[in-house]
Design a protein around this nucleic acid. Sequence first.
DNA 1: ATTGCTTCCGTAGTGAGGTACGGGTCTAAG
DNA 2: CTTAGACCCGTACCTCACTACGGAAGCAAT
Lengths: 147, 147
Amino acid sequence: MLKKRNVMTIGTLAKTAGVGVETVRYYQRRGLMSEPEKPYGGIRHYDEQALARLHFIRASQWLGFSLDEIGELLTLQDGAHCDEARELGEQKLTSVRRKISHLQQIEQALNELVQKCSAGHGDVYCPLMASLNDGVEDATTDKHKVR
Amino acid sequence: MLKKRNVMTIGTLAKTAGVGVETVRYYQRRGLMSEPEKPYGGIRHYDEQALARLHFIRASQWLGFSLDEIGELLTLQDGAHCDEARELGEQKLTSVRRKISHLQQIEQALNELVQKCSAGHGDVYCPLMASLNDGVEDATTDKHKVR
DNA sequence: ATTGCTTCCGTAGTGAGGTACGGGTCTAAG
DNA sequence: CTTAGACCCGTACCTCACTACGGAAGCAAT
């Protein structure tokens, strides 16, 4: 007979994976993890597969995938849908690169402002504030949403 | 007597600044903008100061300040609190740089995965999926929250 | 047997930054 | 004078990923 090793309760599972119990239950409700059957009137137990699933989810999140996207990735797991997975990865890569360049623009603008503030200047005049009042050069001229 | 130029309704103000009417009203509720008095039973009107305020908010948001932080910045506007403003700017600069380096790590990891997927490989094996299952190298080993 | 920690389960609240709705009032055009 | 289109105002709802709450029941140690 099979010897089940590393059988855990939800609390142990969660702690091992470094998440909260409520988070595991939340993932179950979202359909990202299945809820194991519970023995009559007892407590559900989780095995290493559940732990692996949790690791998968956290790794994907770290890469910037949303829980919905992770759901998609998970449907690709059974079977060799490598192309679809790569496609999702490429889309994410593109969006990550967009975010980086956006943040780099901000970094530059902010850096300039702070520099100007540090170089002394007459009182009752603050370069940072002045720029904010004028709209940080062409920052607000591109009308796309900030969110 | 003063000639009021460019007197606007809330709709015109919002459109000019490129935001929604509801957004202006939301900023008023948040205390970022004041609500002008309304003439008896009439319609409030807004001047260029209100528009400037809106520009200030959007410019600050573009730089990554939250609405709460923008509130702080606004209290520094009257009077020459340049040092405090610069301090806030520096904090934001630090956090922007942290975000950039975080995203760059992600970019690198994701890029490698996608590359490996593009280079052919035996079926029933997907490097991207494999990495997610293993936890993307040391990505999940640093146990800090993803949020 | 009693204490005290988990687990179970559903529902509700959080935070950020809005967006939508609905009923009433104004104003300008035809 | 009527009607279309703003405006006024409060309240509710949205997304995302959780987090908290509360009462009942189980399990382990003393």
